[in-house]
Every structure is written in structure tokens, then in C-alpha cells.
Design a protein around this nucleic acid. Structure first.
Length: 278
DNA sequence: CTAGGATCCTGTCAGC
DNA sequence: TGCTGACAGGATCCTA
């Protein structure tokens, strides 16, 4: 998915269009993608816990939206906005075969598209959001975690490879496959290092790197319609500009010029500079 | 308890 | 062209 920066981008972008607006109808096109009984109501807040987006309504109900691997939220009104997993759906005629849920407002429609159906929208009582099993388990985000806390957590999972640890939302919250690779490159740490082998100083480099790469993404608008479709009409998401190593195998390392290689770590495609990451 | 692999699902791409 | 297997911006479940 859509990692923390994309969800934050969605939260900020969507607020402009749906805050204080009324959902008048909910259309569920894929049962698997919607958990609970659909609710209408006025949107009073958009919140985020890690990669989960929460939409609070004025009637005590909330919707938790998790985009997982391929989820997207696409607003179509007098203005348009789209973010999440980048694809032509951002600019396609909707609904289409990947549309799973439609939230209809008085002045527009919000499409939840999701190719692989791993994502979902779940109805919760607003007061129960923080008690949800997924939300409850989430660890702190990098901005509010100290290096000592992270070091302790690394020691607790000392035999796991560091990349797997960074992807575990119950250890540190927000990173996914892109930002884990970018963070480890920034910190100069090899993804197959065992978490227990990292010094406090290396842990700090990882913590600062995670903040840096996610801040940069949020500030550049993450993966949105605006960054997906360029001024000349060609396509390609913001990763081209932003990523130092992710999906850059074969290209020279921006730091030392060594060829970036793609390996497999923790079951995920992983991009590294073998010279810079020890 | 931890660690690692399979699994959910649809679509695309490389290789034959 | 058609088939096959690998892989994908996530998280959970199962096993050792």
C-alpha cells in the first residue's frame, strides 16, 4: 500500500473535499471489501493511525479504511483528487472493475478502488476505534519514538533481519517496502543485518532516516494524481524523483556510483547499494 | 514467545 | 499466440 506518507497525503487532501459534508449513500460492490453495516452521516474528522485512515461521522460511527497493497481513494466532484497505489485508475472513468465501494456525497463521489481486494473499509463505533485489534497493536511512529526505545525493540527481536523488523507495524509504525528500503539506504545499513547486531548509533541513523524519507514524501505530496500524471501528459509516479534505491536496480547509487541491486529479504523485493550498506 | 514461510486476490510481464 | 511462473508500496495465519 500506500504506506504512512500516502495515507497522510490522502488524509490532508481529502479533508478539503469531505469535511463537514454528508455521505448520503454507500454502495458496496464487493462484499469482501466492506466489514459491518454501511452508515451514512456527516464527516466530522479524518484521522490516521499508522497506515489506517479513520473517517469519523457525526452520529457516533466511524469508518476505518486500510488500503493494504493496491487500495486507492479517488474523489470525483467539481474538483478531483486521487491518492494511494498509483495506477491509471487515478484518471480513469469510474466506477470500473476495480471499484469496491462508492461513498456518495451531495456534491461528489468517493471511490474506493482496490485491485487485489486486500484492503477494506470497516465500520466501528467512534469510541471503539482505539480498541480495534489492529489499531491497538500499532507501535509508535518514528517521530515520537526515541532511539533507546527502538534499540530495546531491536534487542527484543535480535535474531530477525532488520528489514523484517522495520516492516512490522507492532515494532515501529508507518514504514512499508519502499520506505524501509529508503531508510536503510539513508542509514547505510544492510537489510539482512540481524536487529540485535545494531549499535545505538546505527539505531539512531535508522530512526532519523525513517523520519527524513517519510517527511520528504509527505512534503512532496506522496503518490497522488498530481504526481502520477505529469504536465506533458505522460505517466509515472513520484518515485522517479524521490526514490534513491527503490526500483532503481541497475542504476548507479546516488552516493557512490556502484550499481544498485535487487535482492530478496523477508520475502520482499529489496533494493540496496552493496558498497554503501554494511 | 519468536522467526519464517504460505496465503489472501487480481493483473502484468518475462520467458518459452 | 498461448501458457506458465514470478512478482507486487500489506498483514495475518500457521508451523517449528
Amino acid at each position: 500500500m500506500p504506506e504512512l506518507p500516502e495515507v497522510e497525503t490522502i488524509r490532508r487532501g481529502l479533508s478539503k473535499f469531505i469535511l463537514n459534508k454528508k455521505i448520503v449513500r454507500v454502495e458496496v460492490l464487493c462484499e469482501k471489501s466492506f466489514i459491518g453495516a454501511p452508515k451514512t452521516g456527516v464527516v466530522k474528522a479524518l484521522r490516521r493511525y499508522g497506515k489506517a485512515l479513520i473517517i469519523d461521522l457525526n452520529n457516533g460511527n466511524s469508518m476505518m479504511i486500510h488500503l493494504r497493497m493496491t487500495g486507492q481513494l479517488i474523489w470525483r466532484g467539481t474538483e478531483q483528487f486521487a491518492a494511494g497505489h498509483p495506477s491509471d485508475n487515478f484518471v480513469a472513468e469510474l466506477p470500473n472493475k476495480q471499484t469496491r465501494v462508492i461513498l456518495e456525497f451531495e456534491d461528489g463521489r468517493l471511490f474506493f478502488n482496490d485491485q487485489r481486494k486486500f484492503g477494506f473499509i470497516k465500520i466501528l463505533k467512534t469510541e471503539d476505534v482505539e480498541e480495534d485489534e489492529f489499531i491497538k497493536k500499532l507501535a509508535k511512529e518514528p517521530w515520537v519514538m526515541t532511539k533507546e526505545e527502538l534499540y530495546d525493540r531491536f534487542q527484543h527481536h535480535k535474531n530477525s533481519v532488520i528489514k523484517a523488523v522495520l516492516l512490522d507495524q507492532t515494532i515501529i509504525c508507518g514504514l512499508g517496502n519502499i520506505y524501509a528500503d529508503e531508510t536503510l539506504f539513508d542509514a547505510g545499513i544492510h537489510p539482512e543485518r540481524r536487529a540485535g547486531s545494531l549499535s545505538l548509533e546505527e539505531t539512531e541513523r535508522i530512526l532519523l532516516g525513517a523520519r527524513k524519507v517519510m517527511d520528504a514524501s509527505i512534503n512532496s505530496g506522496g503518490s497522488t494524481m498530481a504526481t502520477y500524471v505529469k504536465a506533458d501528459g505522460t505517466k509515472g509516479d513520484y518515485l522517479e524523483k524521490f526514490a534513491q534505491v527503490f526500483r532503481n536496480e541497475g542504476k548507479p547509487c546516488p552516493r557512490c556510483g556502484e550499481k544498485i541491486v535487487k535482492i530478496r529479504v523477508a520475502g520482499r523485493g529489496t533494493h540496496i547499494c552493496k558498497r554503501c550498506q554494511k
